[in-house]
Amino acid sequence: DESNKPILLPNESQSFERSVQLLDQIPSYDTHKIAVLYVGEGQSNSELAILSNEHGSYRYTEFLTGLGRLIELKDCQPDKVYLGGLDVCGEDGQFTYCWHDDIMQAVFHIATLMPTKDVDKHRCDKKRHLGNDFVSIVYNDSGEDFKLGTIKGQFNFVHVIVTPLDYECNLVSLQCRKDMEGLVDTSVAKIVSDRNLPFVARQMALHANMASQVHHSRSNPTDIYPSKWIARLRHIKRLRQRICEEAAYSNPSLPLVHPPSHSKAPAQTPAEPTPGYEVGQRKRLISSVEDFTE
């Protein structure tokens, strides 16, 4: 099969070098950035008060330690540790928490760990991170309901609301924008112990962030949302095809390698009803078989 044979790379090609550099910018793992907010007593309706908090309760602090690993920003190499735009020179604080497994990295933009500057009256330095995160974990210690939209931002799609209760338990629920209701189930609340709260809140936030990324990708319907490693695979396959075309153009005697095509017509299947918005969006999480067989 010609399409699977190794090909020689061009010795000097600026377009090839640019493509390789672009490939280096696509990590081999999925990345997520999640905002974390603490809401104190009497702050449920005040964005400024929430963003001005420099610490929270003892249970909130224990919750943070379970979310991930504490890292010092100045020691991080952005090409190895995903920071979601946090500055490593102290502009966004000294520490944050991050978490990773074999296929993804997540960083938490924690408002109480970011510096509260006197010259920044409206807390814009914090909002440029927190307001651009799709998902926020809100530790609501106010005793009042927290409403979506209290923290203004164009991309605040989903809130994971943590409400501490007695007996070391917590109520965990989801809020989302109306255009996200087909992807996020907000109907079920959970009672979770303090011990298990970081794991549950983190998983709910990661799932909500993946759904938000799919939702946000609708602005470019021709580019369905893939995982990062599938995006790398697609980029490599496009690069291979372009090299083959350039080689055939410079030397017409060489065969032009095309991806294999299936001449056999697909079997006719009964027509199915058109899937609704929710089903269609969830299918976009699934990769096409052509990603692996071309």
Rank of each mutant, 00 (worst) to 15 (best):
98 C>Y: 15
51 L>R: 03
209 N>C: 08
65 T>H: 13
104 M>L: 15
141 D>L: 00
96 T>M: 09
116 T>N: 15
105 Q>Y: 12
29 Y>F: 09
157 F>Q: 13
25 Q>H: 07
198 P>M: 01
43 Q>V: 02
85 G>I: 03
133 D>K: 03
12 E>P: 06
283 K>S: 08
70 L>V: 10
272 E>M: 08
258 H>W: 06
251 N>W: 11
119 V>Q: 10
187 S>M: 04
128 R>E: 11
153 G>F: 07
202 R>Q: 03
50 I>E: 02
249 Y>W: 10
213 Q>A: 09
208 A>I: 01
138 V>G: 00
66 G>R: 03
276 G>A: 11
125 D>A: 14
176 C>Q: 02
142 S>H: 01
99 W>Q: 03
171 L>Q: 05
282 R>V: 10
224 I>Q: 07
62 E>L: 04
226 P>Y: 03
225 Y>Q: 13
26 I>H: 03
108 F>C: 01
218 R>P: 04
99 W>F: 08
97 Y>P: 03
171 L>F: 03
245 E>Y: 09
244 C>P: 12
229 W>E: 14
125 D>W: 08
106 A>P: 02
41 E>L: 08
153 G>H: 07
92 D>S: 08
228 K>D: 14
227 S>I: 15
181 E>C: 07
104 M>F: 13
161 I>P: 00
72 E>S: 11
28 S>W: 15
26 I>V: 09
132 N>R: 14
150 T>Q: 03
281 Q>V: 10
68 G>A: 04
294 E>H: 08
16 F>M: 10
229 W>G: 09
106 A>F: 07
259 P>T: 13
239 L>R: 05
189 A>I: 15
169 C>A: 06
47 E>I: 01
140 N>Y: 00
51 L>K: 03
76 C>A: 11
145 D>Y: 05
110 I>M: 02
180 M>H: 02
191 I>H: 03
60 Y>H: 00
98 C>E: 15
266 P>A: 08
154 Q>I: 13
129 H>M: 12
6 P>G: 10
258 H>I: 09
43 Q>L: 01
126 K>F: 05
230 I>T: 06
186 T>D: 09
219 S>L: 11
40 G>N: 03
92 D>N: 09
173 S>H: 11
170 N>W: 00
212 S>K: 01
252 P>G: 08
270 P>Y: 09
203 Q>W: 04
156 N>M: 13
163 T>L: 02
253 S>R: 07
137 I>D: 00
139 Y>I: 00
281 Q>H: 09
285 L>R: 10
30 D>W: 05
162 V>F: 00
22 L>C: 06
235 H>E: 15
162 V>Q: 01
209 N>L: 03
135 V>Q: 00
148 L>Q: 13
4 N>Q: 13
102 D>A: 09
165 L>H: 02
76 C>N: 11
22 L>M: 13
143 G>C: 03
159 H>L: 10
197 L>M: 05
279 V>A: 13
44 S>W: 03
240 R>H: 11
162 V>E: 00
250 S>Q: 09
161 I>E: 03
267 A>F: 07
40 G>R: 02
273 P>K: 10
74 K>V: 10
285 L>A: 14
60 Y>G: 00
221 P>K: 05
273 P>C: 09
247 A>R: 06
278 E>Y: 08
294 E>L: 07
134 F>V: 02
50 I>R: 02
190 K>R: 14
274 T>I: 11
275 P>G: 11
74 K>M: 04
257 V>K: 14
227 S>G: 08
